[in-house]
Design a protein around this nucleic acid. Sequence first.
DNA 1: CGTAACTTGTGAAGAAATTCACAAACACGA
DNA 2: TCGTGTTTGTGAATTTCTTCACAAGTTACG
Lengths: 209, 209
Amino acid sequence: MKRIADSTVRRLSLYLRFLEEFEARGLTTISSEELAARGGTTSAQVRKDLSFFGSFGKRGLGYSVGELASRLREILGLGREWKVIIIGAGKIGAALAQYHGFRQRGFRIVAVYDNDPAKIGRALDGFRIRAMSDLVDDARRDPVDIAVLAVPAQAAQAVADLAVRAGIKAIMNFAPQQLHVPDSVALKTVNMAMELEGLSFALTNREST
Amino acid sequence: MKRIADSTVRRLSLYLRFLEEFEARGLTTISSEELAARGGTTSAQVRKDLSFFGSFGKRGLGYSVGELASRLREILGLGREWKVIIIGAGKIGAALAQYHGFRQRGFRIVAVYDNDPAKIGRALDGFRIRAMSDLVDDARRDPVDIAVLAVPAQAAQAVADLAVRAGIKAIMNFAPQQLHVPDSVALKTVNMAMELEGLSFALTNREST
DNA sequence: CGTAACTTGTGAAGAAATTCACAAACACGA
DNA sequence: TCGTGTTTGTGAATTTCTTCACAAGTTACG
Ligand SMILES: NC(=O)c1ccc[n+]([C@@H]2O[C@H](COP(=O)([O-])OP(=O)(O)OC[C@H]3O[C@@H](n4cnc5c(N)ncnc54)[C@H](O)[C@@H]3O)[C@@H](O)[C@H]2O)c1
Ligand SMILES: NC(=O)c1ccc[n+]([C@@H]2O[C@H](COP(=O)([O-])OP(=O)(O)OC[C@H]3O[C@@H](n4cnc5c(N)ncnc54)[C@H](O)[C@@H]3O)[C@@H](O)[C@H]2O)c1
């Protein structure tokens, strides 16, 4: 199978979001043109993105909203539930643990970890915060799919190494730190300072043509 | 001037981060090769990225860490202080308001807004939470550069419109919602659920070659 | 049934981004 | 001063991504 670009996957997520909106409004079919308009892209792009995975539409008519949504869920691997742990019960970790938007999409937070003795054992939105020393055993007993890292930058690499050792296969990193993980582990880093710098660049270089 | 790709700007941010690390360690010169190794890219890429803005290196030697860092800061528009407001004093908004990593990089949070009467007037990390009705007047009196949106998705577009009306020139959006703003306003959306879906896709499609 | 109006799926063209590859510049040691 | 070993800056080649454009399929309707 051909390698699918990151940007394609990102757009598929977006399409799914729009389809769910349409579904909620009771619409049953949608054209690539309409889908493109919402997503700020072109109808050819939409069709090309989908064509990597098959042909889901009907010529002259468009796509069945429900069917395309469920095909996209399948493609994105959202048919199942993913087990997620959060490491670092600080400000960002707590916000994420309490955020219910993830569960709706099949990402179930199963535990929260921290290494601060003052936090371990305390409750956080229904979770009792667990010690880092429990992580490997816990994950061996009950495998975890994704680890969300919300620890300080200096600790991030060591924590990532531990997560890898615990058998975790994907990491979403919020620490402003470039992490190194084996190729077999999927990694995404969200660096908010970098996003702000992108805005700063845009503001600074607006006047020039 | 040629249009600079988003991915290029992103890498420049990254390079700057590494340079600051090197600077802290007291190193004075660095080669594109070393810079590339940290960033997971190639030396040619590094040199090409920089070449859009000038030639900052010395052949046979590499780049002066301090000088390149300050050139990058200039390019990214980090020479000045940017005024930032946070709209939505919920879990994510509070985490961001209390996060000191932004100020270090020249992004100064000047106010936090919310529309919940129970929250307005309360203190949040030194800020008194202000009412949405103050936003336009406040911003007219004392212009703001960037608005960070941390409100529920349903409210996001209306809040963005208000921010635009208040003269804000850049928006960083955390709501899982596609926003429409005039071309003159820079927009970045961080959608964490979409990032997770990217991991889900990677995990699902790992076995296939 | 025939035709008009749509819309998909996809090769081919075009644009953009990345990598290659090498001349030119420089440091340094003998 | 000369030769050796580096490393930059950049056109050219290559790869990747996006857009174009159109045949083919479908519906609607008289
Ligand atoms: N707060 C934000 O808005 C924000 C924004 C962008 C990025 N970040 C990044 O997210 C990370 C967390 O930020 P925060 O504001 O939540 O910080 P925080 O200090 O509130 O929380 C960090 C938590 O990690 C725990 N911790 C520290 N070392 C650990 C280790 N080795 N193992 C396990 N747990 C450990 C601490 O006990 C603490 O509970 C940081 O890297 C920060 O740069 C935060
Ligand atoms: N918490 C997370 O970890 C997380 C993660 C990803 C995305 N998000 C997104 O960030 C946004 C905020 O999430 P949260 O968890 O902080 O929610 P929250 O409910 O804790 O906070 C939302 C805040 O916005 C305020 N608000 C609501 N409508 C407003 C309006 N019209 N004008 C001004 N303020 C208004 C509310 O009073 C509240 O204080 C949501 O869109 C959410 O989907 C949150």
